[in-house]
Design a protein around this nucleic acid. Sequence first.
DNA 1: ATGATAGATGGAAACGCTTACACTGTCTAT
DNA 2: ATAGACAGTGTAAGCGTTTCCATCTATCAT
Lengths: 336, 336
Amino acid sequence: MNIKEVARLAKVSTATVSRTINGSDKVTPETAERVRKAIETLKFYPNTNARALGSGRSSLYGLIISDITNPFFPELVKSFEDIAVQYGQEVLVANTNYDPHRMEVCVSRMLQRKVDGVAIMTSEIAEHLIDEFNSRKIPLAFLDTATPQKGISNILVDYTAGIDAAVEHLLELGHKTIGFIAGPMSLASARIRKRAFINALKRNDLKLDTQFIEEGNHRTDGGHEAMLRLLDHKAHPTAVIASNDLTAIGAMGAVFERGLRIPQDISIVGFDDIDLSAFTQPALTTVRLSRQEIAKMAFRALYNTYQTGATKGAEYTIQPNLIVRKSTGPRPVSKH
Amino acid sequence: MNIKEVARLAKVSTATVSRTINGSDKVTPETAERVRKAIETLKFYPNTNARALGSGRSSLYGLIISDITNPFFPELVKSFEDIAVQYGQEVLVANTNYDPHRMEVCVSRMLQRKVDGVAIMTSEIAEHLIDEFNSRKIPLAFLDTATPQKGISNILVDYTAGIDAAVEHLLELGHKTIGFIAGPMSLASARIRKRAFINALKRNDLKLDTQFIEEGNHRTDGGHEAMLRLLDHKAHPTAVIASNDLTAIGAMGAVFERGLRIPQDISIVGFDDIDLSAFTQPALTTVRLSRQEIAKMAFRALYNTYQTGATKGAEYTIQPNLIVRKSTGPRPVSKH
DNA sequence: ATGATAGATGGAAACGCTTACACTGTCTAT
DNA sequence: ATAGACAGTGTAAGCGTTTCCATCTATCAT
């Protein structure tokens, strides 16, 4: 079953069938109708491989993430696909599993499939891999890459604004000592968030107490352990901000384990606003980082760059916003 | 950059380059080495589209799920990909969004990309779409399809065993009245789970009280509302089994809202064991349904069928098992 | 030495599309 | 009536691989 059989049945040339499929306006409505009917009858599905090969366009966009089981990503993937579909494009998703070798494999897949652009939503990528894309003029879009490059779009998150909002919210509730559970320092985004927290303290004239900053791993277990360490201090903070929601959720478990209540004894704030955060007990106050917005910007940047053949990428900034739920409350009076 | 340039640099024909890439044994080690060096130097990545076109094999397997943001699926996707990679194959994931039209789009994508097999992990699919695959001899693997067909593999879940384990666990804890929050009756898997529950009651000589069976939607909000309805009965059940974990989590929220405690006042059991379930407060007792196992079976079934050209599919059964955590406890003494 | 055999390599057709270019027939302006 | 423009369609040359078949060389039994 191929375009030739369709052409034969519709009594036209293969060129006309191709034109009809691609919605060219140079086909009379009657002819197009005949072709469409033939396609229908034969249940013909054009071979994507042949199309890509013949046209030189794959209509495929790559999306590289670290781990689909990390709840931050599914919504990102979904939004990215939704918008790609709107533009008549397809998406190739690849997981790096936080592993540099797997990253190479992902890149290789993208290259072999001749994608029209790649969104790299995980911070760590080797320089030489970027070069592979660059030399082939494949548009790239990054999320928070530390090193912006020419020909590459960048989606920046205003972490400062997000963390500031969280700190101010806690200040308004009367908290004086705020702890922070960071992500792994090997991740650029975790480093940026920690820095934003330190700056927010400074801006609000709060003293920085490094013993109240613990390092987690952006997963629940890390948050759990880090929180236990924080609670071990004779005078622990009355509020804690976590570098991401998973960490916050792990931290909440640790608080309960020690027989303390949230938010009466201690307030917790997360970051990201993963779906789950609305359903924890109590519901988590968190800084929302819209995956939909990230996906939309990244895709558009890639699509535009590819279509216009522009050589320089764009920059966009995304504003996170605080979602106040039930895990934050006034500073306990008994506390210092 | 293509195979010709590699051939020129390595001073061989394109046929030999192709053979080297595909690991044919008919190439002398020295020649192969020369070719590999040329590939390296030129940073050549073979064009997947051309490969698929030329060989007639796409080495691509489709995976159709309903919704990647449903926490049941990410782990399934990951496991499926992991095993596909082991076999040197690639995966094309598509979401139906529970929408029959989107399902058609997904199937169309699979057909256009000439996949070597498709795992359909969402129950609802129109008969005529199955035919499209059948007539093209594309292997199919289903999860719990109600209507087994020839040439199609089927992964069956022993829901009866899973629900039985949950019911028996509650019985041992002394519970006499057990409620159930079902999924949407439009979903085959939800219907099967409900039926399994009813049968389990029967088998244990418990009377079936239909007012203690509520319908949810397999999401948290549905579980929340269904639980509120259950709690509205003057004598509500002391234990409730939910059709999936999301429903159970929503139900837990409702319990807290009414000022009751888990498990002291009421026990809750989920189904699936999504990652999150270990981190709820209290951690959810649930019936684990291994996504890894499902993925493994589905992929193997497809791969074997395609490789051997077998015309009849296989059947596998998966045994769920109860994971006891903190959301279940002895029947409250004050209760009837 | 000779023919047979096997193994390595090359030549070129095929895969199923897209698209530049050529062609035909109408229509418009003169 | 006629040249020019233009719309609709067809012809055929790619696109980058794979793979069948042919060719060549070296080895071996005779």
